[in-house]
Design a protein around this nucleic acid. Structure first.
Lengths: 155, 155
DNA sequence: CTACCTGCAAAACGTTTGCAAGACG
DNA sequence: CGTCTTGCAAACGTTTTGCAGGTAG
């Protein structure tokens, strides 16, 4: 994937611009996040880094840094904290879905739907006189597979 | 408030129906939640109970129980966990707003807006073939007061 | 009277921090 | 070379658990 390389360069640019040093550890965390298809916990990110010597504390520190720089975003869900990247290619806002049966956490990848939510957020912003910079939207329920499976059992 | 009494009776009904024993401790936790205007952390709930002998562990156990029974709902936000009641008088879904400046966590109490979000959730449900039972929506930004304060400083 | 519930203290868990050594620029 | 960063281990705050005693139904 050429995209991974390109994004990585961009991220490193942001880090450098803020007077922070680029290290193999930060790069490793970024790499995992870029390649991740879904949202990961700190522990999962830590486990997926095997080619670089890294401590758990550094993963925490890197993620906090990335949050401050606006690179990454935390999504809290029932005790756990998931992380994902915010920039480049990702929508500025998107909806998360958590299946209460299989516990999978996925994105709802539908441009029109995402736009609907963004429009609604703007409406709220004007109506209430607030300034909305970010939004966490998580729907909970049954995913398509689990729904069909459970329906089949109860028939 | 007669409402507090009424709700309390209803909640105790639910607890009894599920074969769980009603105790002064559970009642105390419910009372705090019913009377609370905003969302509370476990520690805050614990502190507000003074007339009953109760241990922190019991507060945790009660809240978990209430969640399982569908009485209460957890709202995770940046490390902390807030709790609120789900039933009776409360909207089935409403939007939380967290101010990044003063850290206050409030509800967006606007029926029309809440309905907009519910409609949107239903749209997603049908479009993606999911079953949506619940939704966590938290907007992050600046509240009206902080926004004006900060604007005044930068002029 | 029995099953469930409670308080307490200990344990478990996730996250943060102090420090000396090391790496980036 | 100075500053920022790291790994390690200890500290920390929150949540869970085991257990003996207590209470609701």
């Amino acid at each position: 994937m050429a995209c991974v390389e390109k994004y990585l360069t961009w991220y490193k640019e942001i880090i450098k611009k803020n007077g922070i040093k680029n290290t193999v550890q930060k790069e490793a965390v970024l790499n995992v996040l870029i390649k991740a298809s879904s949202h990961l916990t700190v522990e999962e990110i830590y486990q997926q880094i095997k080619d670089v010597k890294i401590g758990l504390a550094t993963v925490y520190r890197s993620l906090k840094l990335f949050e401050d720089l606006g690179i990454a975003k935390e999504i809290p869900m029932g005790g756990a904290r998931y992380y994902e990247l915010k920039l480049f290619g990702k929508k500025p806002l998107h909806i998360h879905f958590k299946c209460m049966n299989c516990n999978a956490m996925t994105d709802i990848d539908d441009t029109e739907t995402n736009l609907d939510y963004i429009r609604l957020n703007q409406k709220v912003e004007h109506k209430m006189g607030l300034e909305v910079n970010d939004a966490n939207i998580t729907l909970l329920g049954l995913c398509k597979e689990c729904r069909e499976k459970l329906n089949a059992q109860t028939k």
